[in-house]
Amino acid sequence: MIVADRKKIPEIRDMVCRHKRVLLVGCGTCVTVCLAGGEREVGILGSAVRMSLKLAGHTGVQLDECTIERQCEDAFIDVLAPRVKDYDAICSLGCGAGVQTLAERFPSTPVYPGLNTQFIGILESQGVWTEKCLGCGNCRLGEFAGVCPITRCAKRLLNGPCGGSRQGKCEVDADRECAWQRIYDRCVALGTLEQLDAIAAPQDWSTGIDGGPRKVVREDQCIVGLGPKA
């Protein structure tokens, strides 16, 4: 899932303070699960921002709340659309994709982010989320026993470990696991240690974000005659 965390209240307040009517919109998908932008967080942040606005002298700002099932898909925004005309601005508690989908759907309404989108990750333990995938567009987890060195090794080494692996921890941060120790341990457990004898080829970074924004097109799923733009 996409993991995010909230912005500080004064930052949100300063973004929305020049508008009269603001709609705080939560998202019921990833950010609900990572406790950043679901219905409950919308209630908390809504209350907090309203109080902060009043204390800063912006008494004329009306801030209302709602949460939709998913912000990053146009069909789910349909339920929100009739309400938006009553507001001067939207503050989205969705991820960056949600914010931008709302901005595209409502071209004449400013949309502000209430969260900082962090990464694609997992729930490690209650209240702790960790990054697991960089979205490089060229997955090689099969070569590395299901542990991604591109995301989880601080140096992104494809032929590790480096000399800074310390009792299973990374020299960059003593709390961070050494990804290469994890790869080695997994290979031992799977009986595939010999696969680490091979030199891993350099990564093709052209499939990553460095090549510009990416797109996945499934022609068989596109509506005939309308193409991928439909």
């Binding site: 500080k8 209240i9 907090a48």
Partner: peptide
Amino acid sequence: QLLDEIGI
């Protein structure tokens, strides 16, 4: 923490 951020 939120109350501090809010200014209350």
